[in-house]
Amino acid sequence: MTKITLTVNGTRYTRDVEPRTLLVHFLREQLNLTGTHIGCDTSQCGACVVHLNGVSVKSCTTLAVQCDGAEITTIEGLAPEGTLHPLQEAFWELHGLQCGYCTPGMIMSAADLLAKNPHPTPSEIRHGLEGNLCRCTGYENIVRAVSSAAEKMGSPDA
């Protein structure tokens, strides 16, 4: 067992983990943050995307011990309790989700995309989200939602 200390959604945790523990299992099993999902075993689907020190990572391919001292944000911590991030609002408003399983990872990836490129074209959104698979929506409304959120986040009163 290895002792790690990290901050998740603003709360500091110190835990003993097996060195092989994947971040996604640490979040889900030890911290009970089950909004981060697992959809594959080859790091393709992106359902597990979280932010590690502000950058999106696939938590199924990250070891918990690599996150010692790091700041992690998961879907549960993307917006302050009781509020929604503009991306969450837009996914809701524009029907950017159906079963909702890919949605946390999709939103976390989209947030990272908008941080790097605040005004993406639809094509840039499609390519920017290539690491996230959705089987329900055909992506049409996801692209609309990310465009709409980008617009709102970029507007002066946002």
Partner: peptide, 16 residues
Amino acid sequence: RREDPQLITGRGTYLD
């Protein structure tokens, strides 16, 4: 959809 507030905030309950 009324389903969505849970799902967009990671508060859904899936089997795992």
